[in-house]
Design a protein around this nucleic acid. Sequence first.
DNA 1: GTGAAAGCGCTAACAA
DNA 2: TTGTTAGCGCTTTCAC
Lengths: 340, 340
Amino acid sequence: MNIKQIAKAAGVSVATVSRVLNHPESVAPKTRDKIQKIIEETEYKPNWFAQGLNFNKTRTIGLVIPHILNTMYMEIAKGVEDVAQQKGYITFMCNVKKDPKLEKNYVEELILRRVDGIILMFSALEDKYINEIEQHGISVVLVGENKDVEGRNTVKVDCRLAAMTMVGHLSGNGHKSIGMLYGNDPEQESRDILQGYRDGMRAKKLKVNEDYIMELDNTIEGGYLGAKKLLVGQPPKAIFTSSDPIAYGAIDAIKDSGLRVPEDIAVAGFGNSRMSNLIEPKLTTVELPFHKMGVYGARLLFDLIEDDEKNEEEPRQITLQTKMRIRKSCGHKERIGEMF
Amino acid sequence: MNIKQIAKAAGVSVATVSRVLNHPESVAPKTRDKIQKIIEETEYKPNWFAQGLNFNKTRTIGLVIPHILNTMYMEIAKGVEDVAQQKGYITFMCNVKKDPKLEKNYVEELILRRVDGIILMFSALEDKYINEIEQHGISVVLVGENKDVEGRNTVKVDCRLAAMTMVGHLSGNGHKSIGMLYGNDPEQESRDILQGYRDGMRAKKLKVNEDYIMELDNTIEGGYLGAKKLLVGQPPKAIFTSSDPIAYGAIDAIKDSGLRVPEDIAVAGFGNSRMSNLIEPKLTTVELPFHKMGVYGARLLFDLIEDDEKNEEEPRQITLQTKMRIRKSCGHKERIGEMF
DNA sequence: GTGAAAGCGCTAACAA
DNA sequence: TTGTTAGCGCTTTCAC
C-alpha cells in the first residue's frame, strides 16, 4: 500500500494525500475526511525510507551502553528510554562490551542510520571522534563521564565528593586505618573515587597506608582476590571499595578468612546495586542516581535535537549528587536503618 | 557527499559507482580501483534511506524485551546481540516494561522501520497480531515462550521438567512437606513450574497441601510476604519458588521469624540469578540457559531472514534443558558444592 | 564495460 | 484548495 494507491482510491493527487499526512489544515475538510478514512481503513503507513529521504530525520536515537548485563548501566538506559518513549522516539541500544573498537563500529552504524542524536555512556571514544559525529549533524550527550571534557554536553556524578563523604563516615565510626580497593573501570570514575578517598583521609587527618590501596578488576572475583591480599599481615580496620561487586567479593574473602564484618573489618561499597541490602551483612554504600542520569541525559539530548538554536549555545554540564546508604557492613554504632 | 559527487570526481556515471558498490566484479579493474580509491578517501557511505528504498532490507532486527532491568532478560538479549553483531546486524532493543500496549506500539515502530526480523521475548502479543507482522514480510521468532504455540518458530525451556527434578531433589533431601511460592509472571513459565511441582510431588508420592501453594508477585517483596503467610501455623519443611527473587524474599522472611535456612526450612529457587551464590545461605536453584536461548533464537531468526526457502519449511521449536545448582539453602546432606 | 534514464515512495515548490 | 512535477540518493534495466 503506497501513497499513489491511496490517492487513486480517493480520487485525488498524491500531493493532497501527502498534505493530509503532513499539513492537514491546508486541505479542505471534506477532502481531508475522505482521505483520512481511506488511510485508516487501509492502515496505510508512509514508507519510512521515502520519508527519511526527504526529512532526514528518523525519530530515533542511539544509546551506547558499556555492558548490558550490568544493571547500573541498564538503569541509566531505562532513564533514557523512558524519556525517549514519551517523546515518541525509539532507541537503538548498543552493547559495546567495553570494547572501544566495537563502540566505534556501533557509532558508525548509528551515523549511517541517521539517528537524530546519540547518548554515550561512560564512553571510551576519543574527543576528535565525537566531533566527527557532530559534523554529521547528530547531537551528542555524554552520560556518566567524569573526564574533564570541555565544550560538551554532559551529565555526571560527583564521585570524588561522594567518596570523601564515605571516608568521613567510616572515620566517624571510629575507623582509623581504611583500605581502598578500586576497580580499573570505569576508569575515570574509579580515579575520582580514589581521589575522593585520599582527600577524605586528608580531611580527617588519617594516615594513608599505600599498601592498603589496591587496583583490581571491577568484579566480585577481583574484590575477593584483592581483599585476600589485604588480609595477610596487618589488615586495615575498614575497607572502602569503588563498586559494590568489589565489596561483595571483599566481604566473602573476609568471611572465608574467619573474620567478621563489620566487627573485625568494616566494608563500604559504591553504587548501591540491588543486592546490597540482601547480602549478609547489608552493605553500606553510595547510591548513584542512575535513572536520573539517563533522564537528564535524554532531556538534554532532546533539547538539542528539537531546538536547533540550543546547539549554538554554551554546552551544559549537569552534575548530580549521590546519597549515602548506611547499612550494617560499615559498623555504624547506632543502627539507624538507612540514612538519606 | 553523495554518489553523484563521487561519479563526477571519478569522471564516470553514477551507475558505475553504484556497480562498484554492489557488483564490483562487473566493472573494469582500472575504473574500479580509481572509484574505490575516491570512495575511501572521501569516506563516502551510501545514503541509507536511498538504499532502503531500493533494497527494502535494513540489516536490522528488533528485540522485544519484557524489562531491561531484569538481568535474566538481558542475558537472553546479549545472546541475541552477540549473534546479530557477528552477522553485521544491528539490534533495536525495545523495553516494553511488561505492558502489552507498549509492546504493540514498539512492534509497530519496528514494522515501520522495516526491520528484517523480530525476536519476541516472553511476549504478550496475540497470535493474530504475530501473523500481521509476518504479513509484512518480517520473520518472527519467539523466545522464552512456553505457551503451546503451533506453527511458530520458538525457543523454549522445559520448566515443568526442571521443577519436577527440583522437587525430586528436595524430596531426596528428606523433605516431605514442600510448599510452593509461584509468581504471576512470566505467566506461562510460572504455570509450568507449578505443574512441574505437582507432577514432582505425585512422582514422589508426597501429599500436596493446597495451603502451601501460593501465587504472588514475582519480586523479593512478594516472596517475603508470601513466606510470612506460610510461616504462621504449621509451616512446610521446604519451600520451592518459581524464581530466585521470590526465594530471596522467602529466606529473608524465614530469618526474620527466627528460623534457620536450611536447618528449619529449606529453600530452592528457580533461575540462578547472579546473587544466588552471594546470599546467606547460598541458594539452591535451577539454572536456565538464558544466553543460549538468545543465541539459538537469533540463529533461528537469521536462518529465516537469509534463506527465504526456510520460511516455507515447517516452523522449528527448540527446547533447551536446565541445570540444577545445588547449594546450601536446600539442606543437601553432603555439601558437594555445585552440581552440574 | 559503461551511460542514460526509469523508478523506489515520498515531500514541497510552483502553477493553476 | 488542488494538481503537476522536480527532486531526495540510490539501483538497475536497457542500450550502446
